[in-house]
């Protein structure tokens, strides 16, 4: 039983890491209806920039500020150069453009910062500590804390600030937002910048977990089932989806995996998410999509 709880908690905390990536998707999808496949390469780009700036001898906080500036700039440039020109195109075209974008950002990041694997030490011990007989990873706990702060911060931003309100307005109804004088382009630029910020947080945490390397872009594939499960439009959905996926994935790996010879973590989340979809086609927390003929 203790082992079960340990696996469960480990899974839940791992799930938080998925949620971090998923949140970046939700931000952009909500405000502009684009499924941003480049989120993964943004995570890589952020982590790469950060470690490279650190390696140049900059102190931690300066590297953080500089990387944040870079990510915000990247987001704004993406909006200005790519998405603005694709307004009114079908969703699949936009999606493809973000795949192109992800290839481009990967190339760009590795061209600027090189492609060797970097270690990233955030100064947190990854020694599990004993909590009533259950071993919990400190690092995971720290990551969960970060995620919680991020979610709280985002929800404050969305609900208490003028620009946050405008963001939600745009997400609800583009046209009406335009009619009251909300400049869509600024709002989209802000969303991309925010997604860049989320990518930075995810990049730092994932980077210190896996090392900063090309494989970081693959976290996208972990985030997608979280999105299906939680719904593309809901931040709480991204969190809860992440928790469910993380926990069941670990449990399945431990309890079901051995029967199949392991390695099921690649597809199991998708099948799980699919099973949920059959019951709720818009995800657990996704906005109901009303179709009329």
């Amino acid at each position: 039983m203790l082992f079960f709880i340990e696996v469960l908690i480990g899974g839940l905390l791992a799930g938080v890491m998925y949620s971090l990536v998923a949140m970046g998707f939700v931000l952009i999808y909500k405000a502009s209806g684009v499924l941003n496949f480049a989120q993964g390469s943004m995570v890589l780009f952020a982590a790469l920039s950060f470690v490279s700036i650190l390696a140049m001898g900059a102190p931690f906080w300066l590297a953080l500020v500089l990387t944040l500036a870079i990510m915000v700039l990247l987001g704004v440039v993406i909006e200005k150069v790519v998405l603005r020109r694709l307004v009114n195109q079908p969703q699949i075209t936009l999606f493809m453009a973000t795949i192109g974008l992800s290839i481009l950002i990967e190339g760009l990041g590795q061209m600027i910062w090189g492609s060797q694997v970097h270690g990233l030490d955030l100064g947190i011990n990854d020694i599990p500590f004993n909590f009533y007989g259950v071993f919990i990873s400190q690092f995971d706990l720290f990551a969960a804390g970060c995620a919680a702060v991020l979610v709280a911060g985002l929800s404050l931003f969305f609900h208490k600030t003028k620009i946050g309100r405008a963001l939600r307005a745009v997400a609800d109804d583009h046209q009406a937002a335009m009619s009251v004088g909300i400049p869509l382009k600024h709002v989209w630029a802000v969303v991309w910048a925010a997604a860049g910020f989320v990518a930075l947080v995810a990049g730092l945490l994932w980077g210190s977990r896996l090392g900063v390397q090309f494989a970081l872009t693959l976290v996208v594939l972990k985030a997608l089932p979280v999105l299906i499960l939680g719904g593309f439009t809901s931040i709480p959905g991204a969190i809860i989806g992440g928790l469910i996926i993380g926990a069941t994935e670990k449990l399945a790996e431990v309890y079901i995996g051995p029967y199949f010879g392991g390695g099921i973590e690649n597809w199991f989340p998708y099948v799980l998410a699919l099973a949920f979809l059959l019951i709720r086609p818009d995800g657990l927390f996704g906005e109901k999509h009303i179709e009329r003929v």
Binding site: Q89, G100, S115
Partner: peptide, 23 residues
């Protein structure tokens, strides 16, 4: 190594360019 990244960059850029010019 640099070259292959450059190729990647151009490839991604071309795809975006095409989508913008002729969706």
């Amino acid at each position: 190594g640099m070259l292959s990244h450059l190729e990647q960059l151009v490839f991604g850029g071309m795809i975006i360019f095409f989508l913008i010019v002729e969706p």
